[in-house]
Nucleic acid binder design. Structure first.
Length: 468
RNA sequence: GGCGGCGUAGCCAAGUGGUAAGGCACGGGCCUGCAAAGCCCUGAUCAUCGGUUCGAAUCCGAUCGCCGCCUCCA
């Protein structure tokens, strides 16, 4: 320990990581708004947090990982007007918000599990923590940080001088300055809702009583309320997509530091960059989403996507396209078959021979989770005969606890052979010809079947065939 | 308009001052009667121009191109 360095958005530099409490680390990750399926871009955020967690675990820390489920209050627009995403999805589907939330929460959990993300210690839902959110609002109100206007209770950012710090904002120069009129009565365009009132005469699917009237909490509030509940009012690491830094996280910081009086509220802010889809970016609102199940439908192992993720640094935009995904899948497949072969190795490893590789692997991850460098060490371990197979196996098993590629258990991808009386007969004819060393006939049979799109593969167990 | 990032071999992508990791594809070889699989080998001076330096992909400036955030977004 001691030589771990993470890039901190708050200070815009890599800093040595030390936990607040020795040996323990608290991580809060912004989870999904469960109004629809998440796509592989969302998954990158989860994978980044999982890599972080696995690495810290491998370093011997006791990690408490909290990931929230946003099931209320996330408006279609962050200008504090527009519809609530959950309400909208529920009405559209003719179901309750709870049912929608339940379905997509489950889907999200399955996606995470499929790419081998470790389960969070806490996975709280915003609607289960309304009381905590109201209480936080009351603390802010008591501190004089809020003001009330027609449609809700708002946080006054001028009461928090460090407001622009996290994201390095230039509030005056921002285009949003023109939006001051969008919500009548907002004093500053960046002021944000703590509590929104239910509209007169409109029955919302989700609304609660509060000291300020019936309504629902502002989106940002839940993360402060739930993180403090499970991690305390000052914790180690907060992760999320880079897009969240400017508005969501900035607001979290404002309300948290004002309510808790802690500064910095969070020691390390770690943000992952986006997946780049070359041109049109992928987002739910654009509608051009690719989900994990889309990849599965294309025949990819979900873990091949995890391997894809590990090939680039989390803080760099990573280009996603069919060719890159295919390349990753091939690489992963090769890794799996090698791992499967090594599983049968009986010999013991030699810790002394392994040491340099272990050090390289760790040093890559210590440097702001440089997974691509760590992966390069994996291939180096596997290449040539520098190491015995026992050493290769030991290192691979060990590294995989951080990589999460399931190499210890993964089965070598079995070829799927087909059976058919006519073709099997032709294969027997070919075998007979080969026995007789009549290769012209044997090859002719191969060629004939090849024209039908059938490929013959001679295996140790005899010839097999499949369609291409 | 403000803020930030990127441009490295066909593709994905490390590397932030001392003569360019890794994966995939391609090509060559070994193995195989042939083929498949596997194994081995092989490729770039780092968008362009200029500057700083003994020395730059790496620092500075300019230009071109691409992307993200500021508006739902991971």
């Amino acid at each position: 320990m001691g030589d771990i360095r993470f890039y901190n958005t708050r200070t815009r530099s890599k800093e040595g990581f030390e936990p607040i409490r020795a040996g323990e680390v608290g991580i809060y990750t912004c989870g999904p708004t469960v109004y629809g399926p998440s796509h592989i871009g969302n998954l990158r955020s989860q994978l980044m947090a999982d890599l972080l967690k696995r690495f810290l675990l491998s370093e011997g820390f006791d990690v408490t990982h909290v990931i929230n489920i946003t099931d209320v209050g996330h408006l279609v627009s962050d200008a504090d007007d527009g519809d609530d995403k959950m309400e909208l999805a529920a009405r559209k589907a003719g179901e309750t918000a709870e049912a929608i939330a339940e379905r997509y929460t489950e889907l999200w959990r399955q996606d995470r599990a499929q790419v081998n993300c470790l389960g969070p210690e806490q996975n709280p839902r915003a609607t289960d923590h309304i009381a905590e959110q109201i209480e936080l609002g009351q603390r802010l109100e008591a501190g004089g940080f809020l003001y009330r206007i027609g449609d809700g209770l708002y946080f006054d950012i001028t009461r928090f001088p460090r407001y622009a710090e996290l994201a390095g904002l230039d509030l005056e120069g921002q285009r949003g300055a023109g939006r001051i009129d969008e919500v009548a009565g907002k004093r500053h365009p960046a002021d944000f809702a703590i509590w929104k009132f239910a509209e007169e005469g409109v029955q919302r699917l989700q609304e609660w009583d509060s000291p300020w009237g019936r309504g629902f909490p502002g989106w940002h509030l839940e993360c402060s309320a739930m993180s403090s509940r499970y991690l305390g009012e000052h914790f180690d690491i907060h992760t999320g997509g880079i897009d969240l830094a400017t508005v969501h996280h900035t607001n979290e910081v404002a309300q948290s530091e004002c309510a808790f009086g802690s500064h910095p509220w969070v020691n390390f802010w770690m943000h992952n960059e986006f997946l780049d889809f070359g041109g049109e970016k992928m987002s739910k609102s654009v509608g051009n989403v690719a989900t994990l199940s889309d990849l599965v439908d294309q025949g990819y192992d979900p873990l091949a996507f995890r391997y894809f993720f590990l090939q680039a640094h989390y803080r760099q935009q990573q280009t996603y396209n069919a060719e890159a995904m295919e390349a990753a899948a091939r690489g992963y497949r090769r890794l799996v078959s090698t791992a499967a072969r090594l599983r049968d190795v009986q010999t013991h490893g030699n810790p002394e021979a392994q040491a340099p590789y272990r050090a390289q692997f760790r040093s890559a991850l210590c440097d702001d989770l440089n997974a691509p460098r760590a992966l390069a060490v994996v291939w180096e371990v596997l290449r040539g005969d520098q190491l015995s197979e026992g050493d290769q196996r030991d290192l691979l098993w060990e590294f995989d606890r951080v990589l999460g590629l399931n190499l210890k258990e993964a089965e070598s991808p079995e070829e799927e052979w087909e059976v058919d009386p006519r073709i099997d007969g032709l294969l027997r004819d070919r075998e007979a010809a080969r026995e007789a060393r009549d290769f012209a006939t044997a090859d002719q049979i191969r060629d004939t079947l090849s024209e039908e799109g059938i490929v013959i593969v001679d295996t140790p167990a005899g010839p097999r065939w499949k369609r291409t």
